[in-house]
């Protein structure tokens, strides 16, 4: 790994450790720049989740780094409690099946 990759990896780890519900997306909560990202924001808001976002379009190293970090080729990517949950399709499917409620519920 190059220095930049190591640094990016550390930043990603910090973000998902410091924010219980962390979404890497294109754009932000107010102005998503991609329909897939917008859909995940909408679902998280629907559940009243307290979540943070990172705009990968503003940071090419992070845009590439997040794909390497999770071995997942697409964005958005949702992390809860430090664990990778999935992208738009998975979040939508968990929302429709009712399982997302459990994923988002604070662990005691």
């Amino acid at each position: 790994m190059s220095d930049v990759e190591t640094e990016t990896n550390t930043r990603i780890r910090e973000l998902i450790d410091q924010n219980r519900v962390m979404l890497f997306m294109k754009g932000n909560k107010i102005f998503p720049s991609c329909g897939f990202s917008a859909q995940v924001v909408q679902i998280l808001k629907h559940h009243g989740a307290d979540f943070q976002t990172f705009n990968v379009l503003a940071d090419p190293a992070m845009r590439q780094g997040i794909k390497v970090f999770s071995e997942w080729p697409t964005i958005p990517q949702l992390y809860v409690d430090g664990e990778f949950v999935g992208g738009c399709d998975i979040v939508t499917q968990l929302h429709n099946s009712g399982e997302l409620e459990q994923v988002l519920a604070p662990k005691s």
């Binding site: 071995e71 997942w72 080729p73 697409t74 990778f84 949950v85 999935g86 399709d89 998975i90 499917q93």
Partner: peptide, 24 residues
């Protein structure tokens, strides 16, 4: 679900690294 999507992504690694920008 994550394992299933990984299986599909991995089968399509070449396409995703190339022309394909979005995959549902």
């Amino acid at each position: 679900l994550v394992a299933r999507h990984r299986a599909v992504n991995s089968a399509l690694a070449e396409q995703l690294a190339g022309p394909v920008h979005a995959l549902s």
